[in-house]
Write a protein that binds this DNA or RNA. Structure first.
Lengths: 209, 209
DNA sequence: TAGATTGTTAATCGATTAACAATC
DNA sequence: TAGATTGTTAATCGATTAACAATC
């Protein structure tokens, strides 16, 4: 048997685990207690083997007749991808995009708690915006410590980005979801995910012509 | 020599081409006419080989002494990833996120023209929102034809998504950038890019613990 | 038992990188 | 020429998929 430490799961598998859980959470409302790998695959446009391999990697086993126990599956995935108290996030840049993303995340039931927003605009700082306390970027150091923030969502304007990213690095941020189309040069111990809208549109544009 | 039809470029290469061009457009303002692969690589955290291979694939050649001609590079990339008249896009769902993404794209100088917004809310339809004419989703068919829209950016609420996606498919949309965390089951001739914020945050959360 | 499923390894595919020849 | 670069192939790495044994 191929033994994979849970910590070493491939990124793609982790993404799919998140999607399995979200799907199954709705699915189980319909009182269905078991699901086959081919059903899960069909619902997410994957292959059944891919599903079974992912579940094998996290050590879940199914029943040869009935498939996988839905509740057990949800619980097992949660045990792997959640942490006890969840994660505390900051939205850095409370412009249109920052507020929209804040609202989007708050609408979803997750272990991701947005505990602070940061901006340089004094119109915004000191207020509650989109349900989140907004602080001046000068407070980044204090608030990251105080509120135990480990993930930042970057929705700053291009010119503000480079400076602010230094603050985040210096204060030990561990993960970043980058919505700016600015390239971030950060140490590799910070887990970075880029949502580069312009590049993605150009990619789509290329492949549809 | 490995001959690759430009149409067959790997997706990752196309993404990088977009990033090269954006970087070089700023770079060339500084009156630098040539750039080495290792400089381009350093500025985007890539390897020099990766850069040279990408440029080889699109048939650009550099100078053994001076590197690559910046202007020539920009022009060549543009010839490959742009189309003559650019692409006409629609924002489907003019809520917070839709408006923010609209503003974001409009701020950037690209060949991506947002020519319509769609929503079901009669408060929004018939008006100009974020600089874009907003129509009722019932008009999707007419407007896709009339305005020659080939890419849709999906920023709808989860419950509206499944219905609207059918309309987009039926009316021949070619590419979709999906900001909803809803899984889309679409024909494979439509180029789909998912920005699943919830899943990405859970992925980040997993790898930083 | 036959049939449908799960579980697992080996092969394949796509992308990156190592190695190095060619050139200025 | 020596040194720094580009150009290109082959090896490697990561992820998916084909093949099939095991099980109910």
């Amino acid at each position: 048997m191929e033994t994979v430490k849970v910590k070493d799961l491939p990124p793609r598998t982790v993404e799919r685990l998140s999607k399995y859980r979200r799907l199954l959470s709705k699915y189980s409302i319909d009182e269905k207690n078991f699901i086959y790998s081919h059903d899960l695959a069909r619902l997410l446009n994957l292959t059944p083997v891919q599903v079974r391999r992912d579940l094998m990697l996290i050590g879940v086993s199914g029943n040869h007749r009935r498939g996988y126990n839905v509740k057990e599956l949800i619980d097992h995935i949660s045990k792997i991808i959640d942490t006890e108290n969840g994660h505390n996030l900051a939205i850095v840049g409370m412009g249109n995009l920052g507020r929209a993303v804040t609202a989007f995340i708050r609408k979803n039931e997750t272990k991701m708690n947005i505990v602070a927003g940061f901006d340089i605009d004094s119109e915004k700082t000191g207020k509650e915006i989109a349900g989140v306390n907004c602080y001046h970027v000068q407070k980044i150091q204090d608030k990251i410590k105080e509120l135990e923030i480990d993930i930042a969502i970057l929705t700053t304007s291009p010119d503000a980005t480079t400076e602010i990213i230094q603050l985040l690095i210096q204060n030990g941020i561990k993960g970043i979801l980058n919505f700016t189309s600015v390239h971030l040069d950060i140490p590799k111990n910070i887990y970075l995910k880029n949502y580069d809208i312009i590049t993605s549109l150009e990619e789509i544009g290329f492949f549809i012509k």
